[in-house]
Write a protein that binds this DNA or RNA. Structure first.
Lengths: 146, 146
DNA sequence: GCTTGACCTCAACTTTACTTGAGGTTGCAC
DNA sequence: GTGCAACCTCAAGTAAAGTTGAGGTCAAGC
């Protein structure tokens, strides 16, 4: 833990591409916990670059900050991941990507059917709601794509 | 255009699974334009069910309401789509789904590499930023996944 | 030893996509 | 011809994910 290994917030911002304000915001949310100098300035570990990268990637996968926090907090001591932790998280994210792709593929398939059948009549379309069936048949919201 | 074909907002809500307030909100945003009774109550066409379904699907694809409005407004007279319009929109959405799937697949591939190489060292990882390269090499934000 | 850019806190504002509530009106069923 | 569920408007609130600004402090180079 050489002094030179501690980064001020501006450096971290430059290296991750995040705004300084965003990093402070993440600290607020408990996603990252920097040291402080005697003068109350934040000092980050190099490994925090990794942590922030993880956050950015997880966000791309559609996780909210709360969920990401949960993932990170589930690590032993809630610390920055070790290699093993890291791989575990990565694999879990991989499976989330798989699910997303599967969902999109399904949507695409249904959309294809919809285009194919010209189902503006909406009597058969899988994508949209069961139309008038909903009027005569069951109630309950969210027919579409769920 | 039989009187019986005009739906009050509550019926439309029930059939689409949307909240009444959400439908009013969409009207506000210009996504849908109901008739009014003499007493100022909204009356929707059956085809508006379709219009709302379209909105819901487009949202699932990650479009914002503004973009959806643009798509719908681009139709002749900005009216509810005809069969041909509909198919055109659907195909355009299909290609957006394709793009999303492609992006996710790429992410997944990179993630696999990342898991494989144990690149906590961050010297080779494609997913995260170029780490210290960013310090010594080029500047500029957003290294991650763009 | 001082100047100046980087840093600090805290409050308020922004955007998207709605929901909730107050206070009032309509229209269908009996 | 009346009751009451369903409708109306408009303002305010909510949640997520930050940004912006005011007013003030720190620390590194000359």
């Amino acid at each position: 833990m050489d002094k030179n290994d501690l980064l001020p917030i501006g450096d971290l911002a430059r290296r991750t591409g995040l705004a300084v304000s965003a990093i402070r915001f993440y600290e607020d949310k408990g996603l990252i916990a920097p040291y402080r100098t005697m003068g109350n300035q934040r000092r980050f570990l190099r490994s925090d670059i990794r942590r922030l990268s993880f956050i950015l990637i997880a966000q791309k996968l559609g996780l909210g900050l709360a969920e990401i926090e949960a993932q990170l907090a589930a690590l032993p001591q809630g610390r920055t991941p070790t290699l093993a932790d890291w791989q575990k998280l990565s694999r879990s994210m991989r499976s989330q990507i798989d699910k997303k792709i599967a969902l999109l593929s399904l949507t695409r398939r249904k959309l294809d059917e919809c285009i194919g059948c010209g189902c503006l009549s909406l009597t058969r379309c899988q994508l949209y709601n069961r139309d008038d069936r909903a009027g005569t048949g069951g109630t309950g919201p969210r027919f579409v794509l769920d």
